[in-house]
Each structure stands twice: as structure tokens, then as C-alpha cells.
Amino acid sequence: MNKIISSIAICMLSITILSSCQQDKKLPFYGERHAETKRDTAGIEKIDTVYQTIPNWSFLNQDSVVTTNKSTDGKVYVADFFFTSCTTICPTMHRNLMTVYNEFKTNPDVMFVSHTIDFKYDRPYVLKKYAQKLGVDGPKWQFLYGSKDSVYTLAEKNYLVAVGEDSTAKDGYIHQGYLVLIDKDRRIRGAYDGTKEDQVEQLKKDIPVLLAEYKK
């Protein structure tokens, strides 16, 4: 009898511990990190971990308007790299990303940013046409055009997504289909394969978790 009671007690205890852990769930940090020593207001030295952040950027959007990091500053956003004439993974990525967009459409703290890697053909008016045909209107999802150098560097160094020109590839470019989740402090908090439905579902669950970190 005692045994039964104690095993029930242990079960209850572990359930409470597990569920309390879940409430405090934090998303991981990606990329490089280093320790920095800072003095707080009282002059006491403190060691802080500093994570990799997305630098300032400036591109033309689908309305040919100069758009900078100011539009995403203070927001949680999802970034990806694609091109409009891509016939392989991009349609799937954006079909899936559309479902995320629709879910967070009315949340002012969430944004979407798609960078084209086709600097030759994907001028802003091409991006505009693409966005409209995909079913996106308005500033919540930005489609950005920039020079090869600026976009490719941003992709590889900052968002950690591999992109490149490749004349042997079916459409002339190769790239990874990651949807990268960035927090309000420009740090990388997740990378989801946009061609895989289960990972996109995870992204939908992780965005509220990330938003909740800022509510405290």
C-alpha cells in the first residue's frame, strides 16, 4: 500500500517538474558566441554571453522602396532565401511559409522577409508580381532585392544559409531552404527546413514561445 502511494507521489512530482520546465522553455541560440565582461551600475564586473546578431541591412522591397533593418527592429521575424523562377524547393517553401504567415497575419510583432538570390532577374517589380500571385499583400512580408555581394554575404555569414550560383543546377542557383527565426534582438533562434511540413509546424509552435520570452 505504501509502495503504491509513494509511486503515485513520485509520478505527480515528476509531472509537476516536467510541466514547470515546459513553461520556462526557451529557444536555443545559434551561431557564434563569446563572453564579454561588463560592469553593472554598481561597478561590479559581470560576465555576459554575447550571441551572433544580424547586422544592419538596406535593400529595395517589392514596392521599390528602400527598406532597412528598421522595419524588422524590435520584431520577431522569419527570413529565407529564394528566387522567383525557382521550380524546385521554393514553391514548397513558400506554400508552407504562407500557412505561417496566415497564422500570424494579425500579430504586429511578427514579420516575414524573403531575400531573392537572383540578382539578375528578380527586380522589385518581378518580386511584386510574385508576391501578389502567391497571395501576399502589404508590408508584413517583405520581398527584398539587393546586389549579389550584399545578399550572399548576409545569407552565408549572418543567417548561416548556403546560397550560390551554379550553372549545372536546374534553375541556375542552389540554396538551402531554411526558414530562419530571428528574435527582437536580432539573434538567430531557430532554423527550419521550409520544405518539411513537420519542421514548419514546429516553427509555428516556436514563434509564440519566442514572443513569450519578451513578455516577462
Binding site: 514553391p91 513558400h94 506554400r95 504562407m98 510574385y130 501578389q132 500571385k133 502567391l134 497571395g135
Partner: peptide, 10 residues
């Protein structure tokens, strides 16, 4: 699309 639903106007 999985059910032949297409993709927007694309």
C-alpha cells in the same frame, strides 16, 4: 499541391 489545389496564381 498535395491535393492538386495549385499555388495561388503561380
Amino acid at each position: 499541391g498535395e491535393n492538386g489545389e495549385g499555388l495561388g496564381q503561380l
